[in-house]
Simulated assay, not measured.
Amino acid sequence: MNQIRMHTGSFPLVRDVGMTLTSEGWVHPDRITDFNVFIFVIKGQMQVVEEGTEYILRAGMGFFLKSGLHHLGTAGTIPGTSTIWIHFSEGLQDAHVPERVEEGSLQPFQASRTYKVFGPVDYRFELLLPKLVELQEPASFISKVKDLYELYCSAPLFGHVLLSIKTMELFLDLYRLHHDPERHRMTSKSDAVVRKLALYLEEHWESLLEPDRIRAEFGLNYRYMSTLFKTRMGISIFHYHERHRIHKAAELLKSTSMNISEVSDKLKYTSPYYFSRVFKKVMGEAPSVYIRNIYRM
């Protein structure tokens, strides 16, 4: 569907922002750009063709055009259609990710409901932006898009940086609205199993991963659950459990007087040395460095 993949460790780099009010005979420009385009229709109807696929955009719809593809308009745009658009590139990679990331090499983005401390690994995900979104109650989103346009027009100091940050916020809002859990609940039996298993792993963070215990708890083949979990979550059962345990360990180091050995023992690691290796892999720094960097009241 020619969707845009954003790296969650960076933000979109805004080129420019504008508004369009169409007149009789207006059509979308026939072009191939080296930047992406986000279009939001405030009122009216706009027609866009991308690589031969026609899209009809109505009021309350947001749409992403991907760079490097052929876009044009033919007919179908209504005179008086009002839109706001953003031209942007995907953004820069952070220092912990190779400069050139092959498409599909990053894991899909997944929300962390329980983490309170985040390491570099938590930003090594891709956000697959929806191609087309229709908002049922767009008033609040329209207000944010207009604020973004006003920011672009006012050109404050570091305005381009602020624009890019707020555009990322806007895209995250759009992503959340598109994946509203109240409208897009996981209803299949397999998805219910994945949700229940993730909750089980989070609740048993003090224990080592025990496949036999999980098999008995769920009454399902462990290999089947492993495949299902990896498919739905984009991460293995082991690594999901490991990451959650290390985030809990970081919380203990931050909010209690426990030392590294005590936390290692609490989480049943074989040794503080092994615990430190896993901690550094997940958090990007050794627990001793993490402790030094903690701001204590």
Rank of each mutant, 00 (worst) to 15 (best):
Val41Arg: 07
Val41Ala: 08
Ile42Phe: 12
Gln45Tyr: 11
Met46Leu: 06
Val48Phe: 07
Val49Gln: 10
Gly52Thr: 14
Gly52His: 10
Thr53Gln: 15
Thr53Asn: 14
Thr53Tyr: 10
Arg58Asp: 09
Gly62Ser: 12
Leu65Ile: 14
Leu65Gly: 08
Lys66Met: 14
Lys66Gly: 06
Ser67Asp: 09
Ser67Ala: 14
Ser67Glu: 14
Gly68Ala: 12
His70Ile: 06
Leu72Arg: 15
Gly73Ala: 10
Gly76Cys: 03
Ser82Glu: 14
Thr83Leu: 05
Ile84Tyr: 09
Ile86Ser: 10
Phe88Arg: 13
Gly91Thr: 10
Gly91Ser: 11
Leu92Gln: 12
Leu92Asp: 12
Gln93Ile: 10
Asp94Pro: 15
Ala95Glu: 09
His96Met: 04
Pro98Thr: 10
Glu99Tyr: 03
Glu102Arg: 00
Ser105Glu: 02
Ser105Leu: 01
Gln107Phe: 00
Pro108Leu: 04
Lys116Thr: 15
Phe118Trp: 11
Phe118Cys: 07
Asp122Tyr: 03
Arg124Thr: 05
Phe125Thr: 02
Glu126Ala: 00
Leu127Gln: 08
Leu128Asn: 01
Leu129Thr: 10
Pro130Ile: 02
Gln136Thr: 15
Gln136Ile: 14
Gln136Ser: 15
Phe141Trp: 10
Phe141His: 11
Ser143Tyr: 00
Ser143Thr: 04
Lys144Trp: 01
Val145Pro: 03
Val145Cys: 09
Asp147Cys: 02
Asp147Pro: 00
Tyr149Gln: 14
Tyr149Gly: 04
Ser154Met: 12
Phe158Glu: 08
His160Tyr: 09
Val161Asn: 02
Val161Phe: 06
Leu162Ser: 10
Leu162Phe: 11
Leu163His: 03
Ser164Tyr: 01
Ile165Gly: 03
